[in-house]
Amino acid sequence: MLHIVNKSATDRGSLESCLAMATKGSAVLLIEDAVYAATTGGAAAAKIQAASADLKIYALGPDLAARGMAARVLDGVNVVDYAGFVDLVAEHKSCQSWL
């Protein structure tokens, strides 16, 4: 299953809810303001790093770049472009967007 989060983890609880309910081996894609969580120094960094042991964590490159965060991506986070986003959706049987 692919989980997609688009809200900042320091503003809303959607990333936390997502990480609590994503089963082992699932993929989590961070887009829009959620990409801040995938960067170094932020409050959510430790959570993402801990989660990356059981989950595949992705972040959308254009959203990181647009926020000046392209150079601060955490180790263990896979950066994808829009084509990669489409591939992720196509690869997974189902998809959950954490609004």
């Binding site: 299953m1 699932s26 049987k93 189902s94 998809c95 959950q96």
Partner: peptide, 9 residues
Amino acid sequence: MAEQDVVIS
């Protein structure tokens, strides 16, 4: 959630 075919949020 993992066993669903479709999840709508």
